[in-house]
Design a protein around this nucleic acid. Structure first.
Length: 466
DNA sequence: CGACGGGACGC
DNA sequence: CGACGGGACGC
């Protein structure tokens, strides 16, 4: 079992696993043990006694291995008489030793859990998932108040503390279930750092046209390069400081698909501090411009990158819109965040009402059709480790690509690094994805896809289930 | 080459 | 009303 041999570390571990009893002074440790051990692993019983007289003060502590055991014992034993002629006992979850408070811990604080859920979860889904641990009083999802979009967080209120404790102990780890902090009054901060939508493929279309897009849309269309008609695979890079052909080549070659790089020279053969770059696909060019325009290289010298006419026929309005759509995909990759999906909606606003899924991902890899994600509480059987060059793809694009082999559970990008993990419920699907995608380029980003090493684990603690 | 997260409710 | 002891030790 767990090692609770070390002192000072076991009393409140796990939280809410220790009971506070008020009894008649005649109640002994043995009597308590007899009545409480049926509820689970009793790790410690302490009857508080007067230092001098050794007489019980009518107060005891019972430590269980699990909070659910303590809660069940509390619910069952509160108000019972442990011996003839003694007063009914009172049983509470003990205040943690560090808290200093001796206020009774109320059921209010022990019956509501706080969970992380997929954005697609409805309140009924939440209720269905968590009712296996006990009767639910209510289940609610935290939503963005203006759009109604789920923030991926929910509360479940049970009727009894033991139900909440059991849910926390036994529900899938991916829910990260914890006891909810009781509501406080002064919570008016409308923090919106959850805009990082994990963007599911199906967003609720009905209300889309009614979205208050105005402000955002104008800010995007005004952004550099967007109100320009010229979007090509060909770029001009200008530098005030001297840069060599090799430097420019190395920089722009970081983005896959560069097929041409040439410094411009004047009639005497001196560099004009300009170079022409061409990519074999529009996405790479858009990406290169967004990433490298204004980039300091060498430090202190800002590069200027603009599209130049590559002689392609862009007169067809259809072709132009198609290009802008592809460009929009790239922009979502560049910005890799809240802006991505919003830009997509904006773009879709003046393009065809339905954007074919194909346009979301640009790659030479033949991809299987979309498959449904595995349920979020599925056990992860295999993880892939992915290295992105030059920078990570957005999570929504990765989900789009990696779901196609089946049983995708989750995509996780390591913040600030060019790597991520792809979790599958079925080892075979993970292997299929690896075989199909290793070394491949998606939206101009090259991926190395390999099996992930097992996560580093702390000494003898239970292995995490991802 | 690269490596392991995140959390809060309109009164 | 009813709140905090005893004992302890590595790969």
């Amino acid at each position: 079992m767990e090692d609770y041999n070390r002192p000072s570390s076991y009393l409140d571990d796990p939280p809410n696993s220790r009971l506070f009893l008020v009894t008649s002074k005649s109640i002994t440790e043995d009597i308590i043990r007899e009545h409480f051990s049926p509820f689970g692993e009793v790790q410690d019983i302490w009857v508080v006694k007067d230092k001098q007289t050794k007489e019980s003060k009518g107060v005891s502590f019972v430590k269980f291995a699990k909070s659910s055991q303590a809660c069940t014992a509390m619910e069952d034993m509160h108000g019972r008489c442990l011996a003839e002629g003694t007063k009914p006992i009172k049983v509470f979850i003990a205040q943690s030793r560090s808290s200093g408070s001796h206020r009774d811990v109320e059921d209010e604080e022990l019956t509501r859990i706080f969970v992380m859920i997929p954005k697609t979860f409805t309140e009924d889904d939440l209720k269905e998932t968590f009712k296996t641990y006990g009767d639910i009083e209510y289940a609610i999802i935290i939503k963005n108040k203006s759009t109604g979009e789920s923030k991926g967080l929910g509360y479940v209120r049970y009727h009894k503390p033991s139900q909440a404790a059991t849910a926390i102990e036994n529900c899938d780890k991916t829910f990260r279930a914890i006891l909810a902090e009781p509501r406080t009054k002064n919570s008016s901060a409308d923090n919106d750092y959850f805009g990082n939508s994990r963007s599911d493929h199906v967003t609720n279309e009905p209300g889309l046209s009614a979205y208050p897009f105005g402000a955002e849309a104008t800010s995007y269309t005004a952004s550099d390069g967007w109100n320009s008609d010229l979007i090509t695979r060909c770029l001009m890079v200008a530098s005030r400081a001297a840069v060599t052909q090799e430097q420019v080549y190395g920089l722009f070659d970081l983005i896959p698909g560069m097929v041409y790089c040439e410094m411009q020279r004047d009639q005497y053969g001196f560099s004009k501090g300009q170079a022409v770059i061409r990519y074999n696909n529009l996405g790479s060019a858009v990406y290169a411009k967004e990433k490298l325009n204004g980039f300091e290289y060498p430090p202190g010298n800002r590069l200027s990158v603009t599209y130049i006419d590559d002689g392609e026929d862009r007169t067809s309005p259809v072709g132009k819109m198609a290009m802008q759509l592809v460009a929009a995909q790239m922009m979502s990759m560049v910005w890799n965040g809240p802006s991505g999906p919003q830009l997509m909606k904006t773009t879709a606003g003046y393009a065809a009402p339905t954007v074919p899924q194909k346009l979301r991902v640009q790659t030479d890899v033949p991809l299987p059709a979309h498959k449904k994600l595995a349920p979020p509480d599925s056990a992860v059987k295999e993880r892939l480790f992915v290295i992105f060059n030059p920078s990570p793809l957005p999570v929504d694009v990765l989900e789009d690509v990696f779901c196609r082999f089946g049983s995708l559970v989750e995509v996780y990008l390591v913040p600030g690094r060019n790597v991520g993990y792809i979790k599958y419920a079925d080892r075979k699907h993970a292997n299929d994805a690896m075989a199909a995608l290793h070394g491949k380029v998606v939206n101009g980003v090259k991926m190395k896809v390999m099996l992930a090493d097992p996560p580093k684990e702390e000494s003898h603690k239970r292995q995490r289930t991802y």
